[in-house]
Design a protein around this nucleic acid. Sequence first.
DNA 1: TAATATATTTCAGTCCACTTAACTAATAGA
DNA 2: TCTATTAGTTAAGTGGACTGAAATATATTA
Lengths: 149, 149
Amino acid sequence: MSNETQFNQTLQDWSEVYMRHSFREFKQFMDVNGLSSSQVITLFRLYHRGPCGVSEIGTQLGVTNAASSQLIDRLVVSGLIERTEDPSDRRAKQLTITKKGRLVLEQGIATRRKWMETLTTQLTAEQRVTVIAALTMLTSCAARYGEEA
Amino acid sequence: MSNETQFNQTLQDWSEVYMRHSFREFKQFMDVNGLSSSQVITLFRLYHRGPCGVSEIGTQLGVTNAASSQLIDRLVVSGLIERTEDPSDRRAKQLTITKKGRLVLEQGIATRRKWMETLTTQLTAEQRVTVIAALTMLTSCAARYGEEA
DNA sequence: TAATATATTTCAGTCCACTTAACTAATAGA
DNA sequence: TCTATTAGTTAAGTGGACTGAAATATATTA
């Protein structure tokens, strides 16, 4: 098997494992917190890239502004984001994630990390070094490539 | 920074990157295929662990059998699973993923793999070896630990 | 065999995410 | 200034995913 083929096969295998687990975990995360997938994506958007307006959320989700407005309203009501008037354009709103919203997301991330920790309890110190090296590379690849979308 | 701390921090960073990306990707997968998260989990269950009955799906999803039955009916109507009488107990149904259902899932997995391939286009051959080693370890950890849930 | 338990379905009703269409308010341009 | 555009909300209606309760059919057991 060529290196290239082996590389792709490895990604394939890991992708299947990860998909299978992630979907279950994500559904549970949404159920526990009473959030839809659109709401989670919105929270991540605000968490990672800072405040924006209602239409921008709609565009990212691929839904109408009406849908976006309603979805956001539910997040505001549940205290996960804040909706204020944009001082530079009073037609627009500024959406900001609240402390509570951050906490919810960070708990989700922590759950995932715990899964990986559980996964790796059997590794030797040496194997952990390999995992650290690989995931560090992948994380910085993502920082360079994965952010435009 | 101790090795243990560094290991956890690495998992934390990767988890955040992966969560952020995955939620977007999963929503798109569901939208494109017109599937709910419950339906995707059901398909994965049948794909990976073979046929089972309606109640077992409901239990896994944490919903009532009524909900499970309805959800399954939509999957049957869309041709992704098959519902036949269990010959050993005629009260029960046997749910099996169809060829079409397999294809849908495999396309989802392929999309994820492509994302990782894109991510890693900048790696050197040597770095790829490290990534292969790490992901292979993680995949087999998951095979041992991650399946009970 | 009669009573009970199990597997699934059907029904009525709720909630949420989405749509289109109509609306308000503010900005930008001739 | 008058008009068109832009940002967002509101209203009415659709469909999916859920619930509890009732119904059906089969299996188990006393």
